[in-house]
Nucleic acid binder design. Sequence first.
DNA 1: ATAATGATTCGCT
DNA 2: GCGAATCATTATG
Length: 201
Amino acid sequence: MKQLKRSFFERSKVTHIARELVGKLLVTHIDGESVTGRIVETEAYAATGDKACHAHLGRFTERTKTMYKPGGTAYIYLCYGIHHLFNVVTNVEGTPEAVLIRAVEPISGLETMMERRGLEKKARNLTAGPGVMSQAMGITTSLNETDLTRTKSVIRMYDDGFDMVSGIETGPRVGIDYAGEDALLPWRFSLKGSKWKSPAK
DNA sequence: ATAATGATTCGCT
DNA sequence: GCGAATCATTATG
């Protein structure tokens, strides 16, 4: 079980990183609770040639400045006034690219997840979807700019050698109709056959 | 200063 | 399937 290093995130192909993150482990240590999930769905957002990216064409604002940080930094922001969306910055400092984590499969800390989500049972909507996944893992915007590569970080990613025998599926990204033709790019990656993917089509 | 809008979810029909 | 909830961010649409 190896923690993902800076060199993994600082590579230039955000789509490759998004694909490789499927099957990796996401671990949080928040409020004294440890929670683990296996990533089953991601989306890539690229610096150039991608209208769906918050920082496309070099847009630099209070919110998007986090995407210009070095690869391995957490980019967390509030969407629709309610949902905390968790991304990992990729590429080197100054190049705003990121991977949105859309869904994970619960591995450990199930009781904590259900308590945070206010659910009685282990249901699909425990962690399937970018907003609910963040809630189950305890991720909020206060953790924006967390360095995921530090060994004692409250959010970390690990490679446990999981063999993706079932393969990776690709498809268009969700909820970005405003991006025109870029909304059609097959930059969404998910674990084929997983029951824990987000319900969005 | 202010109005529009969104990388969503949930409950109701 | 449809629409409300709800607010930080963004541009002044």
